[in-house]
Design a binder for these strands. Structure first.
Lengths: 235, 235
DNA sequence: TAGTGGTCTAGACCACATG
DNA sequence: ATGTGGTCTAGACCACTAG
């Protein structure tokens, strides 16, 4: 269980101290040498840990000046999207904890432009024991939808499960992102105030025929999630 | 000029061999030990170079198997390229009306993780006479930044202007999106209530060396903007 | 001037993939 | 069995920041 690399363990320890507020924005982090001494690790290992936090935007480093917690601590989790497969990676990293499964009502389907019969899975996106990263609704075409127990036993993503068990190929995904205010009930589930800003992402998964076989909507409260993508210019 | 760190020089050398086609997708790269021997560098330096290429998605590394050039974007997978141009398209459609140009203060640069001297252009994104779509700040490296009049005369995007007038190539753009609440001043400029949710997008434009030469931050109030993207699975 | 992070070297042991 | 990349140690010199 604790077979994670040492530098990663160190990084997670520092990350926790930042996210819990023990280290507030602007505060100095231990210097590299201090980390080496107190933790009994080499400088390379300490730097590797600090590199992770730097890439996550949690800390700022300046030669000669030291390391401080970033002013606006970046969300604990950022999704990097480079290509199609990265979306699936996100689904694996951030575990979907399903809380209810039921037939979707017509009103909800209408609002999202879905036609036909769908199952609705409602739950939370979670990474380890942190507060939930998102409130998520997943609509799956009724005739191929997994049941409640199956979803919570999944090690991968729902779309991967669909492809594996129903010989379905998802060839196109459209994703929409916008800012919204959380309703009272949504906010309470996520443990934030009503009207808190949230990033709403809607993904529509289509098969080769262009038909929508799955739709997921996630509400990420401000500060818990950022969506990051990298775009390369062809050569 | 050639005072770039050794590992970066090594990375650029390998990058060139890949981009010129000397190393084609799937081809084996030299092993770490081979790089050490032929270039007379330490393993740490070689690994640092390979790490850059890994983060850029140019190569794939597998323990025991070696390092290979990543598969070329499949024909149908003009995704990254398409997205890149789409960003510029957005910049052309939504005109940037600059309201002020000044040197960026250290605090603002710090908060965004920028080092060096930058000019700050503040303004609005507008389509025709509609209410502004976004409140935008653009940071441009001071030595190449356009002045106030130039910006407002531009027909294209700022990044295009940089490339055209300074012989600069922007090869990588990272974009980050998250939900935030607008401050009072931000809200009043946009004509909405304070605390209105907004989609915050930050784009970092990098040259071939990985240096950030431009950064833009846009605040899109809820309801005025949504970001939509399409992802195709390569075959 | 003292201390910081940035770079670099020269070792070592390990888990893993391949033949 | 060999060689790969992944991790880790113990040093070193440098450029830069700050007191």
């Amino acid at each position: 269980m604790t077979d994670a690399p040492l530098y990663r363990q160190v990084a997670e320890g520092l990350r926790r101290r930042i996210l819990t507020g023990e280290l507030t924005p602007g505060a100095q982090l231990p210097t590299e040498m201090a980390l080496c001494d107190t933790l009994g690790i080499s400088r390379h290992t300490a730097r590797e840990a600090l590199r992770i936090l730097t890439e996550d935007g949690l800390i700022l480093r300046r030669r000669g000046a030291g390391t401080v917690v970033a002013e606006a601590p970046a969300p604990a989790f950022a999704q990097t999207l480079g290509d199609f497969d990265d979306i699936l990676q996100y689904a694996r990293d951030a575990r979907f904890v399903c809380q209810s499964a039921e037939p979707a009502d017509a009103e909800a389907l209408d609002a999202l432009g879905l036609t036909g019969e769908f199952s609705l899975l409602t739950g939370l996106r979670q990474v380890s024991q942190e507060p939930p990263m998102a409130l998520t609704r997943v609509f799956v075409r009724a005739d191929i939808a997994p049941d409640f127990e199956t979803v919570n036993r999944l090690s991968g993503s729902i779309s991967e499960w669909l492809e594996a068990t129903h010989a379905i190929a998802i060839t196109r995904v459209t994703q929409r992102m916008e800012a919204v205010a959380l309703s009272g009930t949504q906010a309470s589930v996520l443990g934030v105030r009503a009207e808190t800003p949230a990033l709403r992402t809607i993904r529509r998964y289509r098969d080769t025929g262009g038909e929508i076989i799955q739709l997921s909507e996630s509400l990420h409260p401000a500060g818990r999630f950022a969506y990051e993508m990298r775009l390369e210019r062809g050569q």
